[in-house]
Simulated scan of single mutants.
Amino acid sequence: MRLLSISSGKVMPLFGSHHPDYSTVASAINKQSISNLDSPIPIEISRLGVAGDEQADLSVHGGIEKAIYVYPIEHYAFWNELLSLETKKSINLPLGALGENFTIEGLLETEIFVGDQMHIGTLQFTVVKLREPCFKFNAKMKYKGAAKAMLQSGFSGWYLRVNQTGAIAAGDDITVLPGQRLTSIADQNQALFNRGNQKDLWD
């Protein structure tokens, strides 16, 4: 298991016809890779996440409990195929395209549990919860069914709390120290899917 990319983004207008009330919203979902295997630059990680990264709505992303959003590279093939079918052109998403801060390899939602500790390089993180998609994700992906597809697939990724600050870089190894292992991220996603009442999800 390893870290493939660290990405950050600034708050800016996000345009799209993916919400009945807004044609544009403020979002920092557009992330750019600032450390990757081609250029493994050390990046500072604070209690609030990646240095220089911003969040527009702290109720859904950011802060101590959602400082880092993690997404597995293994799901990129799913999104590339889905979006290629929708747009009728070949899509090859760059790392960070799902709005994640850390793109990782070798660890999935079925294998990671709330309360587990992730060690990346010399830093330590705690798994907090899944990422819940909303209309901003639809706008980012330029596809009205993107949030629904994330929920149905279970390919949600998850948020981390930062326990130990410092610098890490793409290529650093990841190890997991299990917690109580009562609820996996996949379990959380299934519960959310079963409720089926996510605000703005189907717009």
Rank of each mutant, 00 (worst) to 15 (best):
L3P: 09
L3F: 12
S5L: 13
S8L: 03
K10L: 03
M12F: 04
G16S: 12
S17C: 13
H18R: 06
H18L: 12
T24N: 09
A26R: 11
I34M: 09
D38G: 11
S39W: 09
P40A: 03
I41V: 14
L48W: 11
G49R: 02
G49E: 01
A51S: 15
A51K: 13
D53T: 05
D53H: 05
Q55F: 12
S59V: 00
S59I: 03
H61D: 03
G62F: 03
I64T: 14
I68R: 09
I68V: 11
Y71E: 01
H75W: 12
Y76K: 12
F78A: 03
F78Y: 15
W79I: 14
S84Y: 05
E86H: 09
K88F: 15
S90W: 10
S90M: 00
I91D: 06
N92Q: 14
L93Y: 06
L93F: 13
P94E: 13
L95N: 13
L98M: 15
I104P: 06
I112R: 08
F113M: 06
G115H: 06
Q117N: 11
H119L: 09
H119Q: 15
T122K: 15
T122D: 10
T126C: 08
T126H: 05
T126L: 07
L130T: 02
R131G: 04
P133A: 06
C134L: 01
F135L: 08
K136D: 04
K142E: 00
A146Y: 03
A146F: 12
A146M: 00
M150N: 10
Q152V: 10
S156H: 10
G157Q: 04
W158D: 02
Y159M: 02
Y159V: 02
Y159D: 02
L160W: 11
L160M: 10
Q164L: 10
A167T: 10
A170V: 13
V176R: 05
L182H: 14
T183E: 14
T183F: 06
A186E: 00
Q188F: 08
N189Q: 01
A191V: 07
G196S: 03
N197A: 04
N197Q: 10
K199Y: 04
